[in-house]
Design a binder for these strands. Sequence first.
DNA 1: ATACTGAACGAATCGATGCC
DNA 2: GGCATCGATTCGTTCAGTAT
Length: 211
Amino acid sequence: MGVKNPQWTAEKIKEGFDRFIKEKGRLPKSAEIDELNYLPNRKFIERNFGGLEKLRGELGYRDTHFGKGKFRSEIAHRVNISGRNIELNLEKLLKNKFGEVFVHTEKIFDNTKNRVDFYIYSPSGNLGIDVFGTETMHNLQTNMSAKLIKYSGFLERLFFVVANNSFSQKDLDLYMNKKIRVLPKNAKIITIESLEQVLSDMKTYPNPLLK
DNA sequence: ATACTGAACGAATCGATGCC
DNA sequence: GGCATCGATTCGTTCAGTAT
């Protein structure tokens, strides 16, 4: 509400929305708004128009929330399928390396109901692995803050593996360094490539079934 | 029944900038 | 210098589908 320079009016913002619709066939989502130079920062919309959802409604758009209803449903389907594939792929990789009996899937720790996706037994030291496919920085932050609480009782070596091409190890290092709530010393966020590097240096137990 | 997951939106906070 | 505004970052809540 610039006192003397109300640069961004609802009408101006609607022009921006319509321009995006023309180009992409839908309204811009929260994070996308920040990247468009013909729209104000979304925080501005939240402060001055009571939020994105409200403004979309007042401007007459039918869909006002992209995290609910059919949109949410579509997301859940996609995420569940890709998440399952990511876990299955990594499980195969781990069992190839360490052998079936030395890879414990969904291992419970901490006398709670908390589970690690994978727990590896190795002469080089046991370790836990949590994989996920988060593709945006914002969701990485959200997920990590939840995971750090969940894993606060996990004291052994622990890798959070981001299984996609959205982040390089450099991106993840930068994030870890800038993070306010620092990761415990035993934990690290790494890419699949980095994990493969780590695994290649690890020793394996002999297969007890082949004695 | 309950817990988990990642995406969307929101709140809180901090630093930079600009105006008086 | 003091104040308001805005952008950026982090953390929190809600949500739908699925597995346990």
